[in-house]
């Protein structure tokens, strides 16, 4: 086990190139997607959509790197990297964004330091309220959730 972990490093989970999966996945650490996935991915670690991979659906992740194709909404607390071969269609919420020349991105984009904090609270509803105070942000969300 220890060997396999050290080999995989950041990505204990790798979804192979010939895999076609539909559904809901959640991880604690990084994921590397080489095949096709349709559904929801939630992870605290990194998500890598490799070149040739196709991902459609909602994604919530720590940081994301896209080399392949993705359609759907994307939320990241950390950084989103779009490589030159990347194609992203959908809404994007992230703290930091890096777009390489040649990448395609069509959709609503919300980039800012506040976004990462808001999404780390785990609610997309928190985005509407400006979370200027990082400590109070989670409380506000809790209140908002209670009202709903």
């Amino acid at each position: 086990m220890a060997d396999s972990q050290s080999i995989n490093g950041e990505f204990p989970t790798i979804i192979g190139a010939d895999a076609v999966i539909k559904g809901e996945l959640s991880f604690e650490k990084g994921v590397r997607l080489l095949g096709k996935f349709d559904g929801e991915i939630t992870t605290k670690g990194n998500l890598v959509v490799a070149d040739g991979a196709v991902l459609s659906g909602e994604v919530k992740a720590g940081s994301v790197q896209i080399d392949g194709q993705m359609s759907g909404n994307l939320e990241a607390t950390g950084k989103v990297k779009l490589a030159a071969s990347a194609k992203l269609e959908g809404d994007l919420r992230t703290a930091r964004l890096e777009v390489a020349d040649g990448a395609t991105f069509i959709g609503k984009c919300s980039v800012g330091p506040n976004n990462g904090k808001a999404t780390s609270g785990g609610g997309s509803s928190s985005g509407s309220a400006p979370a200027d105070k990082p400590k109070g942000g989670s409380q506000n969300q809790a209140v908002a959730a209670g009202k709903r």
Partner: peptide, 23 residues
């Protein structure tokens, strides 16, 4: 709204826009 072939967003920048980034 932004329509451009390439975009660079440096850390700390704020961007709230509908983007069409195409080569």
């Amino acid at each position: 709204k932004i329509a451009a072939p390439s975009i660079t967003v440096i850390d700390g920048a704020r961007l709230e826009a509908y983007c069409v980034i195409k080569p």
